[in-house]
Design a protein around this nucleic acid. Structure first.
Length: 290
DNA sequence: GTCCAGGGAATCA
DNA sequence: TGATTCCATGGA
């Protein structure tokens, strides 16, 4: 099925910025103006020509229709949100932020599946993005459902039930390394928790709940809060890159180890306020690409 | 061979 | 509470 969407300002939707800014792991560039990925039970192909964006989807699910596809796409890509307002507000903070926004002007924070985000960012621990993507693809191939798109096989992200069939050793074989038991223990625990009820809770409450799961501490919990359907734009995940760039921009400490997360968090909150998660993403994307 | 990656848990002071 | 150390893996 196909959904065509006309964006008001084409500068607030750019495929490369959205998919290569580090928030997601299952989208890949096909050619200059096409990206392809798997979300929920769909293989989705996205192309953009100026203001016109076309989403093509194929699913293995029977009772899916055009309307539910459209609803899913609008939600996933956060299409009802005006990012120009966000960018205008953040641009007033300082020249650093203005430059970062100018560089990654087409970024949108996706509302990704909560379970997928939890598992993906546990795998991200002390890892690099290309390798994280490979591990996730192998996991999907082993435990997801097949979807045939243009004669090629794609795989959905595993359900909790499917992934619970994997032993620690099975997970180790996918290349997860020491993270195998984190995934194993967390999947087992998630079978007993209703994570869909998280969305009604406060950010602080969800953060505490997430951190009871194996492999999740403050950093990963913030990634999940920001990049999943929980969509909390006011958290500020501090990874090695963000720490590095925040020191370079605002602290200039000779030894980066002397910089405490609390100090970074305070500056981020003072400067970027409720949009600090989005601000973090503009900054991260800029430093990674340059 | 060494260093590093969108860190967390265990251990020890 | 705060600092160290270990944890697999693969690419540079």
């Amino acid at each position: 099925m196909t959904y065509k969407y006309e964006i008001k300002n084409q500068d607030s939707f750019k495929l490369k910025d959205i998919f290569d800014c580090g928030q997601c792991f299952r989208w890949n560039q096909m050619n200059d103006d096409t990206y392809q990925g798997v979300i929920f039970s769909y293989v989705v192909n996205v192309t953009q020509h100026n203001n016109n964006i076309t989403f093509k989807g194929v699913t293995n699910c029977k009772n899916e229709d055009q309307k539910s596809f459209k609803t899913m796409i609008k939600d996933y890509f956060d299409l009802d949100t005006n990012y120009e307002e966000y960018k205008n507000k953040l641009s007033q903070v300082d020249q650093n932020m203005k430059d970062a926004i100018s560089f990654g002007s087409g970024i949108r924070i996706l509302r990704q599946d909560l379970f997928e985000t939890i598992i993906s960012f546990i795998i991200s621990a002390n890892n690099n993005i290309p390798r994280i993507k490979k591990i996730i693809e192998r996991m999907c191939e082993a435990y997801g459902d097949e979807i045939n798109y243009d004669g090629k096989m794609y795989y959905t992200f595993p359900t909790i039930e499917k992934l619970s069939c994997a032993s620690e050793s099975d997970l180790r074989k996918l290349g997860m390394g020491f993270r195998d038991k984190y995934i194993f223990n967390t999947v087992k625990k998630l079978q007993q928790i209703e994570i869909n009820e998280f969305k009604n809770k406060s950010t602080e409450e969800i953060s505490q709940l997430l951190q009871t799961l194996d492999g999740i501490a403050e950093k990963v919990s913030n990634f999940i809060l920001l990049f999943s359907s929980l969509h909390r734009l006011d958290v500020f995940p501090i990874d090695v890159w963000v720490r590095r760039l925040m020191n370079g921009l605002y602290f200039h400490k000779e030894n980066e180890k002397d910089l405490k997360n609390k100090e970074i968090m305070k500056v981020a909150d003072d400067k970027f306020g409720k949009l600090k998660g989005l601000a973090q993403q503009y900054l991260f994307y800029q430093i990674r690409e340059q």
